[in-house]
Amino acid sequence: MSNRILKYEIPVATEFTLQLNQGSRIIKVAVINEKAYLWAIAPQENTIIPVNFRVVMTGEESELPYTYQYIDTFILCYGEFVGHLFVDTSVPQHMKSFGL
């Protein structure tokens, strides 16, 4: 099965859901023109599933469920905002490899 790399914008929100291809694997988080994005390797299939994410700011108190795994850190507003991206892995068994 062939794969492709897809780009998704990370919205300005503490919690959000992205529609990703089933079996996707996040490979990069970066900022372009003050917008945060993530890239994922996605199988060339049309099954799309919702995946939940959470952004925690540096210094913010947060009680993340143990099912959330750290993905990467991104910096916006010339260092004024430093966000740490987590993905919810409490998804069906076919997605356990998602995220890392």
Rank of each mutant, 00 (worst) to 15 (best):
A42D: 07
I75S: 14
S2Q: 13
T17S: 12
E15A: 11
G79Q: 03
M1H: 14
N46Q: 15
I48H: 12
I75W: 06
N52L: 13
K7G: 09
E34K: 10
C77T: 12
Y37N: 11
Y70F: 13
K28F: 11
T67M: 08
H94M: 02
M95K: 00
F74D: 05
L85A: 05
R25T: 08
V82C: 08
T47L: 14
T17E: 11
V31R: 09
Y37C: 03
L6E: 13
I32H: 15
S97P: 01
Y8F: 15
N52W: 13
I48E: 05
W39Q: 11
L64K: 03
L64W: 09
G83Q: 03
A13I: 06
I75A: 12
L76P: 07
L85D: 04
L64M: 05
A42Q: 09
Q44E: 06
P65V: 07
I5C: 09
G99Q: 08
S24I: 02
V56Q: 15
I41S: 09
F81C: 13
P11R: 06
E80L: 07
Y68L: 06
A13F: 11
Y68N: 03
V82N: 05
N46M: 15
E60T: 00
V51G: 03
S97I: 02
L6T: 04
Q22N: 03
E34T: 02
G23H: 02
K7F: 05
R25D: 04
S90V: 01
N33T: 03
D88F: 08
G79F: 00
P50V: 08
F16V: 04
E9I: 06
Q22S: 11
F98N: 01
T14E: 15
L18M: 09
F98Y: 07
Y78V: 00
V31I: 06
Q22P: 01
A36M: 01
M57G: 08
D88R: 11
G79I: 00
T47N: 13
E34M: 03
V51W: 09
Y68H: 11
L100F: 14
A42F: 03
L20C: 06
F16G: 05
L38M: 13
S97W: 07
T67F: 15
S2W: 12
V12T: 10
A40T: 01
L76A: 07
I27E: 09
A40E: 09
I48D: 03
H84C: 01
L20D: 00
T73D: 05
T67K: 13
F74I: 05
E80M: 08
I27H: 02
S62N: 15
M1N: 14
T58Y: 00
A36G: 08
W39F: 15
L100P: 06
V87W: 07
L20V: 10
I10K: 01
L18Y: 05
V31S: 13
I5S: 04
I48V: 09
Y70S: 14
V55G: 03
V91H: 03
A13C: 04
K28C: 10
I10V: 10
P65C: 10
F16S: 10
F98I: 04
R54F: 06
P92T: 00
V56Y: 03
P65W: 14
E15K: 10
L20P: 01
H84V: 00
A40K: 06
M1F: 14
I32L: 15
F53G: 10
E80A: 08
